[in-house]
């Protein structure tokens, strides 16, 4: 149809931009932090995003998959992805060495509603790999400390060897401007100094004012349900509870249909949804 002829050729939104793996930092078994930098220096420096957004990462010859950006936009230059090895693309990614070429496009998704969060208390509750997107928000808040009220992190892992960003987070325990509560389900070594017990037990160690707090929960479904319970018990407003959803994503830009929940695209309308959204969308949780 001729009325779609237009002079300007729009950019191809699916084209992965060349980027290099700068460093790979093993975390826990089958989890690595990848520091990645765009080849084009101008792009590396200007690339910015919101905490909670994701990129589509291509391993050349294998395929593409979505990953939350785990670094904070307050520290531009490299982006960091915390990846769990689980299949086709991630297997291939784990075989790559520093300086390997990959493809990256994005950032995609809504990210956390930073403007709304500012001026409030933040309660971040993470389980397992859920720390990946929350780490971005955590450092964003700590690097813009004056814009937020109290910042509390609750993070649970199975055991001390299963905790992502362990040393980075342990270092936060002594900081006065953030309440960092770390817990493990069990500690056989006996040297773990922080809490022991499931993540919900941490609620006994923090005071939470539901009237001026936003909660962001990321983690396994079962943890989500228990944490939600704790928040609802405290009359937490449903639209102040934020969560990040994972769905099958083939495009990241609202075309392929795969990430549909109810009548929203996780890739465009999400991946961050409120609990209120969840109640109103079939299939969400």
């Amino acid at each position: 149809m001729s009325n779609h002829c237009s002079g300007v050729r729009p950019e191809n939104p699916y084209l992965p931009h060349p980027a290099r793996i700068i460093r790979t930092l093993p975390q826990i078994p089958d989890h690595q932090l990848f520091q990645i930098r765009f080849e084009k220096e101008q792009m590396a420096e200007s690339f910015t995003y919101r905490p909670g957004q994701f990129v589509m990462l291509s391993v050349i010859g294998t395929g593409e998959a979505p990953f939350s950006i785990s670094s904070s936009p307050t520290r531009p230059g490299n982006i960091e992805l915390c990846v769990r090895r689980i299949g086709h693309v991630t297997d291939a990614l784990f075989r790559l060495r520093p300086n390997a070429l990959v493809g990256v496009r994005g950032p995609y998704g809504n990210g956390f509603p930073i403007e709304k969060l500012e001026g409030n208390n933040l309660l971040l509750v993470a389980g397992g790999l859920g720390m990946a997107p929350l780490r971005s928000l955590l450092w964003y808040a700590l690097d813009n400390r004056s814009k937020f009220n109290n910042v509390t992190l609750m993070y649970g892992a199975k055991n001390p060897d299963d905790m992502l960003f362990k040393y980075e987070l342990l270092n936060l325990i002594d900081r006065a401007d953030v309440k960092c509560l770390l817990t493990v389900d069990t500690d056989e070594s006996g040297i773990w100094k922080a809490h022991v017990g499931v993540v919900t037990t941490l609620f006994g160690h923090a005071e939470i004012d539901p009237s001026n707090t936003y909660a962001a929960i990321c983690g396994p479904e079962i943890m989500f349900k228990f944490v939600l319970n704790e928040l609802l018990k405290r009359n937490f407003p449903k639209d102040r509870i934020l969560m990040s959803l994972e769905r099958n994503m083939q495009c990241g830009v609202g075309k392929c249909g795969h990430c549909m929940v109810g009548y929203k695209y996780t890739c465009l309308d999400g991946p961050i949804f409120t609990y209120w959204d969840a109640i109103n969308l079939p299939e969400m949780i």
Binding site: G61, G63, C256
Partner: peptide
């Protein structure tokens, strides 16, 4: 309009 995406490697690898 749903589709999926895959990378197809040539024989040269």
């Amino acid at each position: 309009y749903c589709y999926s995406v895959f990378d197809e490697l040539s024989l040269d690898g």
